[in-house]
């Protein structure tokens, strides 16, 4: 395997960008999960899909050599801003903005895909992720965005943490909620856009939620959630890449299935430990009278 990585640049690109995405995905995901906004990842990935479809359409019909991933990136950023505005519009039904945008974006994607001559191999790669899709330029972009995300999260850590824990109190202490939220949603959009090549549009949100869900089971502090989430994420990305290379499996799917198995394993072990300790909190069947 290591020889292959040295020999084939495309594998280097895939592994390096996998490691980077496996790092920033859960870092951003922690804040999404604790704010109960995990669905934003799904929504924005569908918006990115419509961007990719638009990119493919331009590529096929307007003969311009344009990378659909960048169109997807522009779309997901625009989508992020749109969701924010819609949330303010539906003040009493804020979560409604997500299915609205998700459904509209999916509809637009399907129309654009049909205009761009339907499902081809390229589209399949974007949807489900692919080992060979990552070029050296893509890797550079992923690295740049990963750096940006990391720097922003470190700089805004305490504000993001306080807002996630108790928004009202955070605002009264003088934290500029709207600005922070705006920057954060932009970061989410960027992470989704750069994760498309490896994990695929339909599976991007899994990278932001599954490792975090597993991390939540074990963490004793907020900082520990990050440590565990990144750890689980790296294990699933690296193992997933190796397995998909040797057994010719869909890369994104393999990674996500592994992340789901890890989560199931963590929950199982935790239950066993609770059960072994005989804690009164362990689930018991209550007989209905």
């Amino acid at each position: 395997m290591i020889q292959d990585i040295i020999q084939f640049p495309f594998l280097q690109n895939a592994f390096l960008s996998g490691i980077l995405i496996g790092f920033i995905g859960p870092v951003i995901g922690v804040f999404l999960v604790v704010r109960r906004l995990s669905l934003i990842a799904d929504t924005l990935s569908h918006v990115a899909l419509s961007g990719v479809a638009a990119g493919l359409f331009l590529q096929n019909k307007v003969v311009q050599p344009i990378n659909p991933v960048y169109v997807g990136m522009v779309f997901s950023i625009a989508g992020a801003l749109f969701v924010e505005n819609l949330r303010r519009w539906f003040r009493y039904y804020q979560e409604l903005s997500l299915p609205i945008v998700l459904a509209s974006a999916t509809g637009l994607s399907v129309v654009l895909i049909s205009l761009a001559d339907g499902v081809n191999r390229d589209l399949f790669g974007y949807l489900f992720g692919s080992l060979i899709a990552v070029s050296r330029t893509d890797l550079m972009i992923v690295a740049l965005i990963a750096l940006l995300v990391l720097v922003m999260v470190v700089l805004l850590y305490k504000e993001l943490f306080y807002l996630a824990f108790e928004e009202e109190a955070a605002v009264t202490s003088g934290i500029p909620k709207n600005t922070i939220h705006f920057v954060f949603v932009l970061l989410v959009a960027l992470v989704i856009a750069v994760s498309m090549n490896i994990v695929g549009i339909l599976l991007v949100s899994a990278m932001m939620t599954l490792p975090v869900a597993a991390g939540l089971q074990l963490a004793k502090s907020f900082k520990q959630v990050f440590v565990y989430a990144v750890l689980f994420s790296q294990v699933s990305v690296l193992t997933g890449l190796v397995l998909s290379y040797y057994f010719d499996l869909a890369t994104g799917g393999t990674i996500v299935v592994l992340a789901a198995l890890l989560l199931a394993g963590v929950i199982f072990v935790k239950k066993m430990v609770t059960w072994a300790k005989g804690s009164p909190r362990s689930p018991r069947k209550i007989r209905q009278v």
């Binding site: 604790v34 943490f161 824990f165 109190a169 955070a170 502090s221 907020f222 520990q224 959630v225």
Partner: peptide, 11 residues
Amino acid sequence: FPATVFEVVSM
């Protein structure tokens, strides 16, 4: 919410 007493008071 996964936060310790220390983390909450820090806020």
